[in-house]
Amino acid sequence: MKRDISIIDLPGEQKMIIACDSSGGIGPKSGDKVVVPGEVVGRLGVRVALMELLAVRATPLSVVNTLSVEYEPTGKKIIAGIKDELEQLNLDADKVLNGSTEENILTSETGVGITVVGVVSEEDLKLANSRAGDIIAAVGLPKVGEEVIADKDEIANLETMQQILTLDYIYDILPVGSKGVRYEAKLLAEMNSLNLNLINSDVDIDKSAGPATVLLATLPENRLEDLKQNISKPINLVGKLYSIS
C-alpha cells in the first residue's frame, strides 16, 4: 500500500512531489455515461491532484492537462474549469498550466488526465506524523458520479483543505478517492507503523469517494469537537490508531 504520489529527492533538502488524476466517460460528449459541463470536469480533475500535494504540505508549481478531446469547444471548457480551481490557490494559470488536446481523431467520450508537480522541504513534508491514540476523522462524505454535483455541500473541496491546513492539531491528511475510506484509513495506519480500529459511523467506508470528496485527518481525540466547529462539512469519526503490540 502506498500514497498516490511520487516523491523525488532534490538538492538542498527539497522534495519533488508528483500527483495525477484521470477520468473517462464523464463530461459533455454524446458517449459520456455521466453528463456534466466541461468546466466541472476540469475543476474536479485538477482538485484531486492538487489536494494530494497540499495534503503533504507541498507547493504546486506546474499543472499539465492531457485531454483526449478537441480543444474547441470541449477542451477549452475543461481548461477553463482547471483555471478556476487554480485561482482558489492564487496560482497564475498562464505560468503554471500547460497541456495538450486531441486534434487528429474525432472522439465521442471525454477523457482527461491531469498531473501536478510541486516541491516541499524535508522539514515541512508531512507523511507520517500520527501517534498511538490519535483518531481518524472523515471530512466530507463519499460521493461519486452525479452525486458529486447534487450533493456538493457534503463534499470536501480546496477550501476545506485550506481550512484544515491552518489547524495545528491536525497531523496527517489523506484524500480519499475511488479506493474508499477503509483502504485509505488502513494506509494511514500502515504509514505510521500503527494498528487501526475502525469505528462504525454514517460513512460508507467501502464506497468510492470519486474526485476526493473525503479528506481523512488524524488528530487527538479531545480535538474532534474543535474540528467540527472549524469545518462546515460533515465530519465523522471513522477510526482510532493504536500501537502494534
Rank of each mutant, 00 (worst) to 15 (best):
I164F: 04
T213A: 09
M16H: 02
L127W: 05
V40G: 00
N157C: 12
S245G: 06
E87V: 14
E109N: 11
P11T: 07
E109M: 12
I5K: 05
P211K: 06
G180L: 05
R182N: 03
K126A: 08
I7Q: 13
E146G: 01
M16R: 01
L187V: 05
E87P: 09
D226I: 08
N90L: 00
T107Q: 15
L165Y: 12
P37M: 01
L97W: 09
T101V: 15
L97S: 02
N157R: 13
E70C: 13
L97N: 13
V116W: 15
D4S: 12
V35E: 07
M16K: 03
V120G: 03
A189Q: 02
N197F: 05
V181F: 08
T218A: 01
L158F: 04
R3Y: 09
D153K: 08
P175T: 03
L10W: 10
V46W: 00
T74N: 08
S100W: 07
N195E: 14
L54W: 06
G25N: 11
P220F: 10
E102D: 01
E159K: 00
E154T: 02
L89M: 00
A156D: 04
I199A: 01
V139M: 14
V96E: 15
G24R: 02
R57W: 02
A49F: 14
S245A: 07
E103L: 00
P28L: 04
G31S: 14
A80W: 15
L194S: 02
K95C: 03
G25Y: 06
L198M: 10
R182H: 04
S30Q: 03
L174V: 13
T213N: 03
V120Q: 04
N195D: 13
K33L: 05
Y183V: 02
T115V: 05
S232W: 15
R3I: 09
D151L: 04
G180T: 03
K2F: 00
L97P: 06
V46L: 09
V34G: 02
G118Y: 09
V214L: 06
L61V: 07
V203Q: 13
E109P: 02
L158P: 12
A58P: 02
G180A: 07
I244R: 15
L53R: 12
S130Q: 03
M1Y: 13
K2V: 03
E102T: 00
V238T: 06
G210T: 05
T115F: 01
N104F: 09
R3A: 06
